[in-house]
Each structure stands twice: as C-alpha cells, then as structure tokens.
C-alpha cells in the first residue's frame, strides 16, 4: 500500500503548493499506516526533486517524457494510473487547481476510486474515510465519506500548510508505457515566465472599481513587487478591460487562498468574497465604512485608496529597509 501525491512544477521549479501537498499527503499516509511516494511529471532537476523528500516523501518518482510536455488529460491520467497500480496506491492526492481538475476526475473513473475535491481537512476518520470539503463557494463545508478502496482527494491551497519531515532522498526515474493517447493537439502556446502565478502567490494585492481606472494600477503593482505578491482584480475591473480576465478573482473567476489578501477599493460583493474567503488574512481599504468587504476582513482602513496605497508603499519600504 502507498499514498501517491502528484506534484506540479512551473518551469522546472516546484510550486509552493506542491510542498503543501506533500505535507498533507504525509499526514494522510500516517493515518493510513502507509508510506508516501511523490510523483513528478516534467523536466525537473535532481536537486529540485530532492526537496520533495524534505516534506516526507520516502520515494520520488520522476517521469520526464517529451510526449508529456503538454497537459493531455488522458495521457496524464494513464501515467498516474500506471504508477498507482505499480505502487499499489490506496490514496492519491492532487491540488484543487486547473491540473487537479483536469486529471483527478478521469483517474477516479479509471480506478473506480471515489474522489472528493476542494478538500480542506485531513481525514477526520479513516474507517469510514471522511474528509471535509468546501461547498456553496466557501459559504459552507460538507463532510463526505469515500466508499471505494482507493481514495482520491484534491486539496484547497493553504488549507493545510507546510510541515517539514525529512526523509532520505530516493529517486526513481520512470518511463511509462505511453500509447497513442495524445488525442488533443496543441497548435500554439503563449506563456510568460518569471511572473508570480496568482494561484500560487503567498500574497495578493488586488484592485477594484475604487481604483478609478487602469492608469492608477502603478501603485498596486509597486506594492505587489515590494511584497513579492501577485496582482488580482475584481470582476467589474476585468469586465471593463482595465485588467485581463486572468486576474479576476471571485466566484466565476479564480478562487485563491493566499496567506495575505489586500483588497484595494473593492466593495466585496458576495461573489468576490467566494473567491477570497479562504485567505488566511484579509486587509481591506475602502472609503465606504459599510462596504461588505469589511465583514470578511481581518484588518481594515476606511479611507481613500489613492492616498492610503502610497503610504502603505512607503511603510513597507521602511519595514524592509529600502
């Protein structure tokens, strides 16, 4: 028996959420009295792969095949199913993000393994196997049991945290039997590198209609850069094309759970809160003291965001000694 955790890299470096996933999977493995194996697909150097053992993986399986450079849902499902069979897995852990959503449901059917997504807890009990998941866009939680012998979970970002548990680094390079599953054909890729991924960012600085116009985004970007943060926006902002829709967080946009979310001039419509309410700490700056964002916030300033933002920037600079 084993627990397998599927880790993700971006340009050869593991995302922070991958280490959180390994930490979480280690906890699941302990509860199931079994060992943890981390699986990486892609071109990742050995010293980077080694990092996975710092969080409790007793073996790291690396699959590096040119055929798998694009995420093909079926091909990735086949590879993970093959590794799961080889390692006699009784639980498989994913992140609840675009990749997890693409693969986990297919794998669930392939392995006849019950899947719970958007998980926010460790297994509460293992017999029956029960976890808590987010429902109604973070307005509630539900406890769900999985009835099948193999369990698949996808974890919400920042629901568990990082726990170091160093194990000896054991690496296995693995070549799966790839058939002609590549059924979708990527004809063009547009991708920026180096940018902080919004869904993997620890800190997010976000702007709403209170920012008045796209020309005022300089201060948001400056604050974000100082904090090593990603930038985001509310729905009206992306609808008005002040910012691209990739930055839209909220119920129909991206759902994020950073450690710190700074909402600048965002009133906090219920749909927006659905996208951010799992953040560890929320800061709101808004001139309207009645704005619903303050009900979700941990810290708030009632004031003009145009005046407050530059002062935040200088205070952060002072803190960091810049």
């Amino acid at each position: 028996m084993s627990v397998i955790v599927y880790t993700e890299n971006w340009d050869g470096k593991f995302k922070k959420l991958s280490f959180e996933l390994v930490s979480y999977a280690k906890d699941v493995a302990k509860k199931l009295n079994t060992s943890l194996i981390a699986l990486s697909i892609g071109n990742v150097a050995e010293d980077e792969l080694k990092k996975l053992s710092n969080y409790g993986a007793v073996k790291v399986i690396s699959v590096n095949e040119n055929k798998l450079k694009d995420l093909d849902n079926q091909a990735y499902t086949s590879v993970i199913a093959e590794v799961a069979a080889k390692e006699n897995a009784n639980a498989i852990i994913f992140a609840h993000n675009n990749t997890g959503k693409a693969i986990a449901p297919r794998l669930s059917v392939r392995l006849k393994a019950g899947l719970v997504t958007a998980v926010v807890s460790s297994p509460i009990t293992t017999e029956p196997f029960m976890v808590t998941k987010k429902v109604f866009t973070s307005k509630a939680f539900a406890n769900i049991t999985i009835k099948t012998p193999i369990k698949i979970l996808s974890l919400m970002q920042n629901a568990f945290g990082l726990i170091e548990a160093a194990e000896a680094f054991v690496l296995e390079q693995y070549s799966p039997a790839l058939g002609d599953e590549m059924k979708t054909e990527v004809i063009d890729v547009k991708k920026v590198s180096g940018k902080i991924l919004l869904t993997d960012a620890d800190i997010v600085v976000s702007g709403g209609r209170g920012m008045k116009g796209p020309e005022n985004w300089g201060s948001i970007e400056e604050l974000a850069q100082l904090l090593g943060a990603g930038t985001a926006c509310s729905r009206p902002v992306s609808d008005e094309h002040w910012r691209t829709h990739e930055e839209h967080v909220g119920q129909t946009g991206k759902v994020i759970a950073p450690t710190l979310y700074i909402a600048c001039g965002i009133s906090g419509a219920i749909q927006h809160l659905g996208g951010i309410s799992s953040s560890k700490c929320i800061v709101a700056i808004n001139k309207d003291p009645e704005a619903p964002i303050f009900e979700a916030a941990d810290y708030g300033i009632v004031g003009d965001v145009m005046k407050v933002l530059p002062e935040m920037i200088s205070a952060v600079k002072e803190l960091k000694g810049i």
Partner: peptide, 26 residues
C-alpha cells in the same frame, strides 16, 4: 455511487475586522 454525504457545517464567524485609522497607515 463512490461517495456519501454526511453533514454540513457553517464556517466559524470571523473575529471581526480591526480598523486602523487612515491617518496611521504605518
């Protein structure tokens, strides 16, 4: 069916928002 629903829970209420004066951003 692969899974079974057990029960719902509502999120714990937030501790409340700590307000800081706009003149004291630091």
């Amino acid at each position: 069916v692969f899974t079974e629903f057990v029960e719902y829970e509502l999120p714990k209420p937030k501790a409340g928002c700590k307000k800081i004066d706009a003149e004291n951003v630091k």
